[in-house]
Simulated scan of single mutants.
Amino acid sequence: MPTIKSFQVTFDCAEPERLARFWCEVLGYVVPPPPQGFATWDEFKRSQPPEQRDSWFACTDPSGVGPRLFFQRVPEGKAAKNRLHLDVRVATGLVGAERLAALEAECARLVPLGAVHVRTLYAADGEEACIPMLDIEGNEFCLD
């Protein structure tokens, strides 16, 4: 029988802490405590060599169920469409107008945080919909 493995989702980005805090707001995640021996994240950052400061940040699901999200600074900018994206499941089990209302409400909550509403996609049967969006660094994700 295969072993279930834990995993984290890693984002290459320009501003790790800013992007991590955005995703905390989207998902209800939290910033974990600073590394052992440091009272604050700022204290930890000051202990790092200048070239390593602000090079990574992470956030976690407070319930411990979802994967850890890790954000690492890379020198190059985003150049193409993501080959992987997150589906933020805000309307699971809903259909029709109720589903669309839940998706639109979440979209309206995220836009002031810096997310971009790309479009609303409707299925042919009218029962399903999803909303592709971009995070604050242009990474694609969907409200589903």
Rank of each mutant, 00 (worst) to 15 (best):
M1R: 09
M1K: 13
T3Y: 10
T3E: 15
T3R: 12
I4H: 05
K5D: 03
Q8I: 02
V9I: 15
T10Y: 05
F11R: 04
D12E: 07
D12F: 08
C13G: 05
C13L: 07
P16L: 03
P16A: 03
E17N: 09
A20E: 00
A20Q: 01
R21M: 08
F22H: 01
C24K: 03
E25D: 14
E25Y: 00
E25F: 04
V26R: 07
L27P: 00
Y29M: 07
Y29K: 01
P32W: 10
P33T: 10
P33W: 05
P34C: 06
P35W: 02
Q36Y: 04
Q36L: 10
G37P: 10
G37M: 11
G37V: 00
T40G: 06
W41A: 07
D42L: 10
D42M: 05
E43G: 13
K45C: 02
K45V: 13
Q48A: 14
P49Y: 09
P49A: 14
P50N: 11
P50F: 04
Q52I: 02
Q52E: 12
Q52C: 02
R53T: 04
R53A: 03
D54V: 02
D54F: 07
S55N: 13
S55E: 12
W56R: 09
A58M: 13
A58E: 08
C59I: 03
C59S: 03
C59M: 04
D61I: 06
G64M: 08
V65S: 14
G66A: 11
G66T: 00
L69E: 01
L69C: 08
L69D: 03
F70A: 14
Q72R: 11
R73Q: 12
E76T: 15
E76C: 07
G77Q: 13
A79F: 06
A80R: 15
A80N: 09
N82K: 06
R83P: 00
L84K: 13
L84W: 05
H85F: 14
H85C: 02
H85T: 01
L86W: 12
L86T: 07
D87Y: 08
V88R: 07
V90S: 03
T92L: 14
G93F: 08
G93L: 05
E98A: 14
L100M: 09
L100R: 13
A101Y: 09
A101V: 08
L103M: 10
E104K: 13
E104Q: 15
E106W: 08
E106G: 00
C107R: 11
A108M: 02
A108C: 10
R109D: 11
R109G: 07
R109T: 05
R109N: 11
L110I: 07
P112G: 10
G114H: 10
G114S: 08
G114L: 12
H117V: 04
V118D: 15
V118L: 13
R119M: 09
R119Y: 00
Y122H: 15
Y122E: 14
Y122V: 06
A124L: 11
A124S: 11
A124R: 12
D125I: 12
D125W: 12
E128N: 14
A129D: 00
A129K: 01
P132Y: 11
M133W: 00
I136V: 15
E137I: 11
G138E: 02
G138D: 00
G138C: 07
N139H: 15
N139V: 04
E140V: 07
F141W: 06
C142H: 13
C142D: 13
C142Q: 04
L143C: 08
L143P: 09
D144T: 15
